[in-house]
Nucleic acid binder design. Sequence first.
RNA 1: GGGCUCGUAGCUCAGCCAGGUAGAGCGACGGGCUUUUAACCCGUCGGUCGCGGGUUCAAAUCCCGUCGAGCCCGCCA
Length: 493
Amino acid sequence: MHWADVIASELIEISSFHRIATGISPSGHIHLGNLREMVTADAIRRALIDAGGRAELIYIADDMDPLRRRYPFLPEKYSEFVGMPLCNIPDPDPSGCHESYSEHFLQPFLESLEILGIPVETRRASEMYKQGLYEDAIKVALKNSEKVAKIIREVTGRELEEDWYPFMPICEKCGRINTTKVTGFDENGVYYSCKCGNSGKVGYKGGGKLSWRLDWVARWKILKITCEPFGKDHAAAGGSYDTGKRLAKEVFEYPPPFPVPYEWIHLKGVGAMKSSKGIVIPVRDLVETLPPELVRYVIIRAKPERHIEFDPSIGLLEIIDEFEEKFKEKDRSVQLSLVQEVKYSNVPFRHLIVVGQIANWDLNKAIEILERSGYSSENLKEDVERRLRYCKVWLEKYAPKTLKFEVISGKVEINEEEKKFIEKYAEKLREDMDAETIHKLVYEIAKDCGIDANKAFKAIYKILVGKDYGPRLGYFIKSLGVDWVKKRFHEAY
RNA sequence: GGGCUCGUAGCUCAGCCAGGUAGAGCGACGGGCUUUUAACCCGUCGGUCGCGGGUUCAAAUCCCGUCGAGCCCGCCA
């Protein structure tokens, strides 16, 4: 049974309707590692529906979260914004394409979610706070500060100051949220003093936010969350899910959601993807490189509790092979990955890599080549058009050099034997020959010259692509144009 | 100090939740194929399921312990 179906079957015993929450932080590029949370949630949503239940996905974008420090990808002057809520910090892109720091990272991610077929209700924390949705929760938390502190002490073993409050006001003077300290509260608002020297009072609607461990729990109740995937950092003993469970029951009187902890995705040879370190593959980039079903498949094929070692290069090619194979078997991971009804032709991605390069990414030329090689199906053109685009991007961005070739010009060093072969070959090569004839001619001429066919092929590849090997020769020469190839032979030595 | 995950063929992993004669892909080796760049087809080799104990008619699977690897929490979120 697929992991998503196992979770769905457990959920459906609790209720037939579920609200699944996700909470990826828009504090930097949202990357493949973050995406795991969304795709995991969506796989569960689909599994629930397949099991006869209903489900909705909610994404709480915590744009009230303060900027922790100036990350390496940020300009120098961003030091001054450290501590301010992300929604109040300007777009770090020099073009200022979005209205705030958080929107700059959030927007492309939301676009990607549409491409990935993940229907999600997005709620921004800043808006929820301003709308007053948190008001009751804040009051409950403040009134129960001692109880909250006790729970946190018991679960985490951490010491909290006597006058600790689970609320972080935004300083009206310096705009920071992590430099303030609550000094008291009443019906009108929360009183604070800030390290900047300012002190004052903020309201319950948008004047500040609950500290993380409380904020998370408050959301569960406000949005009626029943299930939530989260990173294993939250899942560790004494982590925020542990405190959350108790706070939910004892302070907010709401049952904690069904937890689905998941592991990090590592970038092969680099380590865990961390937006703060800038080692990431942004989701936006990924959906331009791979068909959506494959992006999903990378995540869905692995159980959430397992590490994923993501290799965007040759390793990805192996996953694509696997996907194409399992696609025929109606594999469950494939089912849960498909976004729309896509009709795959029988052309492997691996082969498109070669054809695309020969055809110089021209669709009609590519189709022509494919048809000559015997591929045919109703949806060939439609499918190739779609996947050829991805293929090109992948090849440019992630493919190992060994899979790329480039038609070269200029002189090439070849020996007498090779020269003799090339000359004879060029002499016999004619424009009206078909690919197969061109190909067979190599063996013929090689035999005449008394050289090994292998050497003959190598000689030609050396001249055309500067390597000992290359794409299947007949089609290659045909698509380059026989006359052009002859000319190339002449200028090569 | 605490928690989680992993340990099964040379490699990557499936199988474990609901116990019933160890699987796949890749690699290697042998063969086929007048080259789809790491194409394709056929075949062979390859594992005391980390280790020790327990439960059971029966354990890779359940339980206890132990060793090794990785990560997380004990700042913030």
